[in-house]
Nucleic acid binder design. Sequence first.
DNA 1: GGAATGATGTACT
DNA 2: GTACATCATTCCG
Length: 194
Amino acid sequence: MLGLLLIHELPGGARLVGRIVEVEAYLGSGGDAASHAHRGPTPRSRVMFGAPGHFYVYRSMGLHFCANVVCEPEGRAAAVLLRAAEPVEGESRMRKLRGGRQGRELASGPGKLAQAFAIDLAHDGRDALHGALRLERERGARALDISVGPRIGLSKAVDLPYRFFVRDSPHVTRAAQNGRSHALSREVRAGEPR
DNA sequence: GGAATGATGTACT
DNA sequence: GTACATCATTCCG
């Protein structure tokens, strides 16, 4: 999903567009204690158990929203958390949504990303490929230099290397910039089988 | 019904 | 680095 465009067409015609530069994977039950799907479906996580290609949005810490895309076949309940994006279009609108912040502070974090792109619980369960909020492949996108590292902010399953980010992007989260993740780094050319 | 706990962000020291 | 805002979800009794 790295390198895909995240697009939100707002009522009124404004477009928010960003390029995904950092994600984390969360598996279904079995081996990933940090996943919301780990103990089976709940009212909150039910979307994870549904069809792939749909957004799973939840409220974090009572304050923020975090957006995922369900990625595995129905029932497998794996999803990918959108952690950071590089603004491409609609930056001034994003700045308003983010309380005046700008540049790399617009969407370098899952809560920031959701706020900058006006994503909330109304998007939970929505089609991630065909709606007003959707992902698109960018024409002419070139291969990415991708690094891998542990996920952020967890107390369980802290060692699983399921965070992926564009290595040299200034728009990734601080944890990625600090290089703590590079111990497990490897390069993956976009489009190659993994 | 109750209590603990977050897939966070920001401000302050 | 530490504090704190803030509340739904989840699990346990």
